[in-house]
Amino acid sequence: MTLPSAPRRRPFRQLDVFADRSLRGNPLAVVLDAEDLSDEEMQRLARWTNLSETTFLLAPTDPGADYRVRIFTGSGELPFAGHPTLGTARAWLDAGGAPAGERIVQECAAGLIQVRRDGDRLAFAAPPLRRSGPLEEVDVARIARALGIPRADVRGHSWADNGPGWRVVELGDAEEVLALRPDLSAVQDLKIGVLGWHRSGGDRPPETSGAPLYEVRAFAPGFVEDPVTGSLNAGIAQWLVGRGGVPPRWTAAQGTALDRAGRVDVQVEADGTIWIGGGTVTTIEGTILA
């Protein structure tokens, strides 16, 4: 009979991501030394933290990466996720990590992700979409039922899948998004993103106004509502850029319905690279026995 190994003290951080102060963004747990943890132990720890994601820092296997991260929800592992990318990068930097080059290079199951610093803010380069294009009508109808709205209220729809499998629907405006009272039992296996434009005097606010361009909400199986979602916002930005009519730089709001103040910075470079960024704030720092 093999006895379980004794737990070790491991550096641990909990952060708020896409926020400028604690308790207003999306929380993330980071285990900074996960080298000898098994898949089962990582999954068990992720269930225990009871957050949408928990990440585990490892030595890179790709010579071009500064570190490797594994990202777990309470039910499984993700190849990529946005707020875990920024939060893990912040925890790694604060623990003394130093990138080999100008940018931080994160290795994850989705490949190598570039992370850049802009003062005290971080941003990741949106990974390529695994699936794009309009949704099937059967999915649009299912999403409308889950959201509790008529099918006719859906103004646009698209896949925005860069790993997690997001499907996005567009409503008439931000007020419609914030008024949603979804039936989460009807979400089933769907990961649903919803966006609606903020209006000012009947028009979308200019990118120089500092106001959010649109409001986002995210619903997925296994949790009620995600406060602020980097991967979804990256997919939405790629959809909107491909569609045209957006400025080269803007801010999206998310979490308002949950009393959060999530703000996602989006910047489109001349070469088409889309950067998704925001604030990262450490809320808990210490060790965990695992």
Rank of each mutant, 00 (worst) to 15 (best):
T2E: 13
T2C: 04
P4V: 07
P7T: 02
R10M: 14
Q14R: 13
V17L: 03
F18D: 00
D20F: 03
N26Y: 01
L28Q: 09
L32E: 08
L32D: 01
D33P: 03
D33K: 03
A34M: 02
A34I: 05
E35K: 01
D36A: 13
L37I: 13
W48M: 10
L51E: 06
S52I: 08
E53A: 08
T54K: 05
F56Q: 07
F56G: 02
L58S: 11
G64R: 15
A65K: 00
A65N: 00
Y67F: 15
V69T: 05
R70E: 05
F72T: 03
G76E: 10
E77V: 07
E77N: 08
E77F: 10
L78E: 07
F80G: 06
A81L: 11
H83Q: 06
W92R: 04
D94N: 12
A95V: 00
P99F: 01
A100R: 15
I104Y: 03
V105E: 03
C108G: 04
C108P: 03
I113R: 10
Q114F: 01
R117C: 15
D118H: 10
D120T: 07
L122N: 02
A123R: 04
S132G: 14
G133F: 12
E136D: 15
E137K: 11
D139T: 12
A141K: 14
A144E: 05
R145S: 06
G148Y: 02
V154W: 03
R155G: 07
G156L: 09
W159V: 07
A160H: 01
D161P: 04
G165P: 08
V168Y: 04
E170N: 05
L171Y: 12
L171K: 10
L171Q: 06
G172L: 13
G172H: 12
G172K: 11
E176G: 15
L178C: 12
L178E: 13
A179H: 11
L180F: 11
V187M: 02
L195R: 13
H198C: 09
R199E: 15
R199Y: 04
G201K: 11
D203I: 00
D203S: 15
R204W: 09
S209Q: 05
S209W: 09
Y214I: 04
Y214V: 13
V216Q: 05
A218Y: 09
F219D: 10
A220I: 03
A220E: 14
V224N: 12
D226K: 13
G230T: 04
G230W: 02
S231I: 10
A234Y: 03
I236T: 09
A237M: 12
W239V: 09
W239Q: 01
L240C: 08
V241E: 11
R243N: 12
G244R: 08
G245N: 09
P248S: 13
P248Q: 12
T251L: 14
A252E: 07
A252W: 10
T256Y: 12
L258I: 04
D259A: 15
G262N: 11
V264E: 07
V264N: 07
V266H: 09
V266G: 02
Q267P: 00
Q267F: 02
V268C: 12
E269C: 12
D271S: 10
G272Y: 02
T273R: 15
I276L: 14
G278C: 08
T280Q: 15
V281C: 09
T282I: 11
G286P: 06
I288S: 01
A290C: 09
A290R: 00
